[in-house]
Design a protein around this nucleic acid. Structure first.
Lengths: 125, 125
DNA sequence: CTTAGTGTACTATTACAAATAGTACACTAA
DNA sequence: TTAGTGTACTATTTGTAATAGTACACTAAG
C-alpha cells in the first residue's frame, strides 16, 4: 500500500504522511481502521522504525490517527473532515499556480479544459 | 529588487533563480539587460558570493543568462521563450493540484471562478 | 601599465535536518 | 509468560546548504 521514493526531495516521513492522508480522502482506509504497526511498516519499506514513528506522531498530532500503546494506531472518526478542511487552504496555491501559467502564456481555455478533464475522470471512478 | 527569506525551506540560491525567472517573464528585466554582479548582489542580500554564483551558474546552464568573464551577466535573447516552455510543464502540476482539491470536496465551480478571477486581474495590469 | 571590477574555480569548514542505529520502558492481548 | 504494540531517548551518520577564504583570468577605464 505505502511506497516511498528515496530519490525524492521530500523527506520519507513526509511522504508517509501525505500518502496516508490520500488514502483517507480516497476512502481506501476508513475511520476506525487499524494502520500498519511502526515496526511492521518499517520492515515493509526497509526504513528505520524512527522514521515511521515520526510520521505517525505527526498524524496523531493533527488528529488524523489515534495511537493506543500496546494496541496499535487507528484512523480517527473525523479524519476525513479534518483533511478536507486542511486541503481547502490549497485553493491559494491553486491561484498562485494559475498566475504562473498565465504569465507563461497559457490561455485560459487550456486550464478550463484541464479542469473538465480531471472532474470527468472522477465520474468514471 | 531581489529579496530572500532565510526562514523558507527553499534554498537561497533557488529563491534567486525563481525570482529572476519571474522578473524575466514579467518583463521587469529584458533580454540584453545586465543583472547585478555576483559580489554586488551578495552584499545587497547579505549572503555569501558563492551562493549567488550557484544561482547564476544554474541560470547560465539553463540558457536564461549569459555570463561574460570580466564584464558581467546578461539576460539572453531567448530567455523568455525558454522559460515559457519550461513553465508549460507545470500544467501537469496544475492537474495534480486540481485532483487534490476535487478529492477534498471543492466544487468545480469554485475553481472556475478562481481562474476567472486570476485572468481578470491581468487585464487590469 | 595599473587598477578596479567582473566571472570562475577550488578547498575547507560550519550548520542543520533527515535518517539510521540501538536500547529501554510501559502497555495490551493471547 | 510471551509476543506484539506505541513511546522515549541518546548517539551517530549522511547529505546539502551555506559560509569563509583564496586564487586566477578577463575586461574596461584611468
Amino acid at each position: 500500500m505505502f511506497s516511498i521514493d528515496l530519490m525524492s526531495r521530500t523527506p520519507i516521513y513526509e511522504q508517509i504522511v501525505n500518502q496516508l492522508e490520500d488514502f483517507v480522502l480516497k476512502e481506501l482506509i476508513k475511520p476506525g481502521d487499524q494502520i500498519p504497526s511502526v515496526r511492521g511498516l518499517s520492515l515493509e519499506l526497509s526504513t528505520n522504525p524512527n522514521t515511521i514513528q515520526k510520521a505517525y506522531s505527526e498524524l496523531d498530532r493533527r488528529g488524523i490517527i489515534h495511537s493506543v500503546p500496546g494496541r496499535g494506531c487507528f484512523i480517527t472518526m473525523d479524519a476525513k473532515s479534518i483533511l478536507s478542511e486542511q486541503k481547502l487552504e490549497k485553493v491559494g496555491d491553486f491561484m498562485e499556480l494559475t498566475r504562473e501559467l498565465l504569465l507563461a502564456g497559457v490561455p485560459k481555455a487550456t486550464l478550463l479544459e484541464r479542469i473538465e478533464e480531471v472532474y470527468s475522470e472522477q465520474k468514471n471512478a
